[in-house]
Amino acid sequence: MITRSAAHSRVHRTFSRHLKVMVGVKRVIDYAVKIRVKPDKSGVETANVKMSMNPFDEIAVEEAVRLKEKKVATEIIAMTVGPTAAQEQLRTALAMGADRAVHVVTDAETLPIHVAKLMKAVCEKESPDLVILGKQAIDDDSNQTGQMLAALMDWPQGAFASAVSIKDGGLEVTREVDGGLETLAMKLPAVITADLRLNEPRYATLPNIMKAKKKKIDKFTTDELGVELKQHLKVLSVEDPPKREGGAKVESVDELIDKLRNVAKVID
């Protein structure tokens, strides 16, 4: 375990250059909204539904802002792939403390591989030293983009980070794995994805919200970045989860085991 101040001085020594952090921000249906499936089962209803920043991305932004407050990072770029309205989520990231933003504007359905390729294109333009993404988005729960980006860039990855520190000019990332914590050391540039326990995101202050609208958002189309959004998957149908049926009371442990074995068929 290294102390914060030790991390500080070491970082200053190692990074005399500017340490640039890029964070991914996705516009998703707000976590508190009750999701409704469209009548034609083609997807979920998004019209007139409150949209927010993916909560794991908030954690990613928060981590970047904390790195900047610790003077480890000097610039934070928030990036999104999404419709014009996704600008609202970029604005939230800017209000939390990102310095500027990149918006890849598209109305198309995007798969993790598309987003990873677009992020690669932006990484090539911006050359960040560290990319922080959420571990997954709460809409499609894919949990792929960070890993794919790391592979495309051939950068080390630390997925599901629950703690991040700078050590010896590289990163030390603690991950929650089955049975405990795993600590990885990696060189920069790298990709990490934020787990729920990495930090608790701040609320944006009023002055920062007002400042955010003065910050720059660069816009690109997918064509400009040379990425073709080829659809590899076809959604056949989106359905509601099955309705919960009322439970039944059992008289004895034997009956319970019998039901589990023969009715629910969950044990044999």
């Binding site: 927010s52 309205a85 600008q87 609202e88 604005r91 939230t92 800017l94 209000a95 933003a101 609320y203 944006a204 202050t205 009023l206 919200i209 007002m210 955010a212 609208k213 003065k214 910050k215 720059k216 958002i217």
Partner: peptide
């Protein structure tokens, strides 16, 4: 950056919405 003006009949810009969120 451009500010999205309120939709017809509404009074809030994206800054208002950000403030409400916070």
């Amino acid at each position: 950056a451009e500010t999205l003006s309120p939709p017809p009949g509404e009074i809030y810009t994206s800054e208002h919405l950000a403030i409400q969120d916070s």
